[in-house]
Write a protein that binds this DNA or RNA. Structure first.
Lengths: 338, 338
DNA sequence: TTGTAGGCGTTATCAA
DNA sequence: TTGATAACGCCTACAA
C-alpha cells in the first residue's frame, strides 16, 4: 500500500502550507488563481482524498446516513425496499453522503442502535421506513433533535416531521379510472383490513373513483391480510357472486397475483390490477401501480440535505423554506391483465 | 443535544486519568478491580461510547465493510441479495463492524468507487457479490492488498482469495434425488445457457443425480435465459415431446414459476422444483432449493474478521490457519409442486 | 497500577 | 493572499 497521502503531502508537493490546500478545497475563491491551479494539480497528481475521520473530528459531521434493512417479509413486495435502498444510496452519493445499514428486532432494540450509531459513528441522519401510529422511534429522534426523514407519511401528526410518501389513493384511483375507461362498471377492491394508513389510503382511492361513476362501492369492498393465497381466496368468493365484478383492483401485487390465479382457473374475463409494479408483475403481464422509488429516495436525501447543509443540525428547523413533506404521484403501468 | 461525552468526561467522573479509562476498555485485566468497576459505572452512567472517528485516526481501522447494492434485476431472485444483505449487516454488527453501501454502473466505475471509499472512509474490507470470469475488481483489490471476500466462488482461480459459496450442484442433486424417490424416471432440467459458473454448476448436480440412476441426462437438458416466460416456453416444449418428462428441475424460481404455469395450463401431473426458495416459491407452494443466506453472510464476516483481526491487514495472509474458502450446502424445501 | 506526553489529519482562528 | 497554531477524541509509548 502506497504511503498515505495527507494534506501535508499535497502542501509540500505544491510548495504551500496545509491551510492553503484546505482553502483551495473549501473556499477556492480566496486563493490566488495561480496557486489554486498548482494545488489542484498536486491533488490530482497524488490522488489525494481528505480523510473523513479527521474531517469529522473537526467538523462533527460524518456525512453518513443510516437506514434499517429489514428481514425480508413478503418477498414480492420486499423488492420495493431493495429498490428504494438502491435509489437512496445513489442519491446520497451524489449529495456527498454515504449510507450505512443497521438491523433491529424491535423498536426498543432499534432505539438502542440509534444510540450506538450516534455515539460511535456520529451519524448525520436517519431514514426510517414504514412508521406506524404513535411511533416511538420518531419521538426518540425528535426529542434529541437528530435529523431524520421517513419514507411513508406520518399518519397521526402530518406536519410534525419531514416525510416522503407516494400517493396511494391516486394510484388506485388511476387504476380504477382506467378500468372505467375500458367499460367496466362493477369494480371490486381487494385490500388489507382497515386500520393501516397505507391500506386505508389505497382503498380510499378506489372508493372515490367508483363513487365518481355514481355507483356505491361498499358492496364490492373486501378485506384480507396480504398474501397470494389470500388474494386467490377472496377473488374466488367475489367471482361466485350472483352479480360478480368484471374487474378487481388489488392493494398489492401479491393479492393481485392470487386474484389472477382465481380468474384464470375460472376462465373468467375479469381484469386485475396490482400495486407496486414488482418484477413479478412485469413478468406475468399484470397491470400495476408503479411507485417512483428512485424519486422517493432522492426526495428523502433532498429533505435531509436541506436540514443538514442548511438550517442547522436540529431536525426541527425549517429546511430552507421548502416544504418538509413530499407526496409523489405513482403511475399506472398497463399490461394484459387489465 | 447533551454535551459530548468523551473519555475525559468519564475519567473525571471516575476520578482517574484518561489512560485508565482506556485501559479498562482495552485491557481490563491490568486495572485494579475496584478502579475498574468505578470506571465501568461511570461509563454506563454517562452513556459513553468511544468516538469511532478518533479511534480510527489512531488505529487506522474504520470497522466498516462495504458492499454493493445492485439495481434490482430479476425481482424474484433479487430478494436473495436482500436477504444476504440483512444477514451480513447482522453478522457484521456482532463482530463489531458496520456495513456501508455503494452503487456502481460498471466495473471501471466500481473501481473508482473503491478508491474513493478507501481514501475517504478508510474502509476495512469489501464484500463482492457475483464475480465472473477474469474479474477486474478482485485483481484491483488484491493488487492493493485490500481485504475482501466474495459471495460466489472464484471460478477461474479457486484458491486465489477467500470466498463463500453455496453448493448449487448439491442443491439440484438433492432435488433430483428427491424426485427419483418419488418414482420419477424422466427428469428434465431447465437451466441457463452453458458458460456461467453458477448455471453450469446447478446443471451438473442434476446431471450426476440422473446419471446415477442409469439414465442418460443429455436428452432432457434444456438451456434458456432466466425468466418466467422463458421457463414457461421451454416447459411447454418439453411437455409436447412424445415421451415427455414427468418432472422438471429448474435452475431458478423464475424458471420454475413459468414451468409451473405451463404444467397447470396443460393439466399435466408433472413435478416442478425451483432454486432459491424465494418468497414467491413459499407462497405458491413450489418445492425449491434453499440457500443458507444468513449463514453465508456470517461466513463472509468470519473470513473477513480472521484476516482483519488476525493475520495482518494484507488480504493475502492466511486467515488464522483456517480455510479461506467456505462451501455451504443448501437444503431442499419440499412443497406441493414436487 | 496509574499518569503524562505526543500525534493521527483536518479545519478555524488569527497573525503576517 | 498566505501561513502558523491549536484543537477535535483517542490510543500507544513511556515514565512514575
Amino acid at each position: 500500500m502506497a504511503q498515505k497521502v495527507t494534506i501535508a503531502t499535497v502542501a509540500r508537493q505544491a510548495g504551500v502550507s496545509r491551510q492553503t490546500v484546505s482553502n483551495v478545497i473549501h473556499t477556492p475563491e480566496i486563493v490566488r488563481e495561480e496557486t489554486r491551479e498548482r494545488v489542484r494539480a498536486a491533488i490530482t497528481a497524488l490522488g489525494y482524498r481528505a480523510s473523513q475521520a479527521a474531517r469529522q473530528m473537526r467538523t462533527g459531521r460524518s456525512q453518513l446516513i443510516a437506514v434499517r434493512i429489514e428481514p425480508t417479509r413478503d418477498g414480492i413486495n420486499g423488492s420495493v425496499l431493495d429498490r428504494f435502498l438502491h435509489g437512496l444510496t445513489e442519491a446520497a452519493g451524489e449529495a456527498g453522503y454515504r449510507v450505512m445499514l443497521y438491523t433491529a428486532t424491535d423498536a426498543a432494540n432499534e432505539i438502542a442502535t440509534y444510540d450506538d450509531l450516534l455515539g460511535a459513528y456520529d451519524l448525520d441522519a436517519f431514514v426510517l421506513t414504514g412508521t406506524d401510529h404513535g411511533d416511538v422511534r420518531t419521538a426518540w429522534l425528535a426529542e434529541r433533535k437528530v435529523p431524520f426523514v421517513t419514507f411513508g407519511r406520518s399518519w397521526d401528526a402530518p406536519e410534525r416531521y419531514p416525510w416522503v410518501d407516494v400517493d396511494g389513493a391516486a394510484g388506485t384511483a388511476a387504476a380504477t379510472a382506467h378500468l372505467v375507461t375500458q367499460g367496466h362498471q362493477r369494480i371490486a377492491f381487494i385490500g388489507w383490513p382497515a386500520g393501516s394508513g397505507v391500506g386505508d389510503n389505497r382503498r380510499a382511492g378506489w372508493a372515490s373513483a367508483v363513487s365518481a361513476t355514481g355507483v356505491d362501492p361498499a358492496e364490492l369492498n373486501r378485506e384480507t391480510p396480504d398474501g397470494i393465497t389470500q388474494g386467490e381466496e377472496v377473488a374466488r368468493q367475489l367471482l361466485e357472486l350472483k352479480l360478480p365484478p368484471t374487474a378487481l383492483v388489488c392493494a398489492s401485487d401479491s393479492l393481485a397475483l392470487g386474484a389472477l390465479q382465481a380468474v384464470r382457473d375460472r376462465g373468467a374475463a375479469v381484469a386485475v390490477t396490482g400495486f407496486d409494479d414488482t418484477p413479478v408483475a412485469q413478468a406475468i403481464g399484470l397491470t400495476s401501480v408503479s411507485q417512483p422509488l428512485a424519486q422517493a429516495a432522492a426526495s428523502c436525501v433532498d429533505l435531509l440535505a436541506a436540514v443538514l447543509d442548511g438550517g442547522g443540525v436540529d431536525g426541527a428547523g425549517d429546511p430552507g423554506g421548502g416544504p418538509a413533506q413530499v407526496l409523489l404521484t405513482p403511475s399506472l403501468v398497463v399490461r394484459q391483465s387489465g
